[in-house]
Design a protein around this nucleic acid. Structure first.
Lengths: 222, 222
DNA sequence: GTCTATAATCAGATAGAC
DNA sequence: GTCTATCTGATTATAGAC
């Protein structure tokens, strides 16, 4: 920390002090702890992540964490909340980038791209979510299962629209279909290695598999 | 334990004692500990599974476990080894139940059914494997990643045959396709609840999705 | 082979000075 | 807001009697 920045802060006239400075120091520390927690949870899982690891990564002390969070559980809860928020907004953004008249198939394809991008991104929050979900206390799991189900509403709407447009065959179960698709996408975190194929190429393959299957090309029924 | 059974054992003439009784007592205890470990790992994950939980379920003492296994790690390693063995033999069995002249598509469909059955079965070993894999020590993970890749050989062969028969379009990447399919199947453990649909019905949907996609029915290209 | 201590660690949480 | 010191509880692993 330079003397300049410190003295500049001191020099600011009290009377004019802004009510909402861009980032308060405590906010910044809290954010650093959360980032560190997501980082550590992603790499070590929930049980093996020690508060001391998080503190170290956040450049603070284990005991200082308790100034910002009530408990270890409170930290993980906040990390998961943020992760869900990010995932939903990513998928929503991908969908709304489509033009107004886009078909259901086009919007689902866009959503698939968005979902793959967030799952396979470098985002510690969403990666941590995938990794630790089934290690966290049951109470938390139940809570976030509800959140997850709410977020699935986007997909349900998309699928309903697709069926109405005839883009999904009338005799398949939409719930199972949605869960199979989400599994296909979520599991990719287990095997994806950057390099051979890009995330968008994988998303293309998945979208094509989803609508047309892996079988040989066929003509639309007359 | 009844007096009858104890005295019956005593009464067996020494001279005639069989060299290889069906199950030695120590073997039985060892097996009980492993079953208990799979049971507990499946339900609590790796980190939260205490040796005392396993001991309790196996109706023995925590310290007695050390007579059979060198460490906690040795137990989990054996559980995973058994799980892999079971999965491979299940899928292989499903494939070989197909008649000799079966098409690649028929054999892949059979394999999909076999894989769903093992993943969604009540088998504690394979369920534990899914649940704890990314919580175990890195050394173990590396080892079993190799085993997993060996087992994937079955699928690779199946896919190669399908391509040769024209059952898989020529321009899709077989590795990505295989991984997407496995993800679709493996993730099902996260959402499957017995009741609404049977395992075989889900497998049917998945196989159809895999070959034909979710889109409306289409006619083979001329 | 099994049981009763008990050692050895380790990590989450708290108290209180600064 | 942050730091040092410490408490507390839990869990793997071992020693040694039976």
């Amino acid at each position: 920390m330079s003397i300049d920045s410190a003295s500049a802060r001191e020099a600011r006239p009290r009377a004019a002090k802004p009510k909402k400075p861009p980032i308060k120091k405590s906010e910044a520390t809290r954010a650093r702890i959360l980032d560190a927690a997501a980082y550590v949870f992603r790499r070590k899982g929930y049980a093996h992540a020690r508060l001391s690891d998080i503190a170290k990564k956040a450049r603070t002390q284990t005991s200082s964490i308790y100034y910002y969070f009530e408990s270890r559980e409170a930290i993980v809860s906040e990390v998961l909340r943020i992760a869900n928020e990010k995932t939903a907004s990513y998928v929503n953004a991908a969908i709304s980038e489509q033009p107004v008249g886009a078909t259901a198939r086009e919007r689902i394809t866009a959503a698939i791209h968005g979902h793959f991008r967030i799952v396979l991104s470098d985002n510690d929050y969403t990666s941590a979510h995938m990794r630790i979900f089934d290690q966290i206390p049951e109470k938390l799991q139940e809570h976030f299962l509800k959140v997850l189900d709410q977020n699935a509403g986007i997909w349900r709407d998309l699928f309903d629209a697709a069926r109405a447009e005839g883009a999904i065959a009338p005799d398949v179960d939409l719930s199972v279909l949605r869960l199979l698709l989400l599994g296909m996408m979520n599991w990719s975190i287990e095997w994806f290695k950057p390099g051979r194929m890009s995330v968008d190429q994988i998303a293309d393959q998945a979208a094509r598999l989803f609508f047309d299957g892996a079988g040989p090309p066929r003509a639309p029924a007359p």
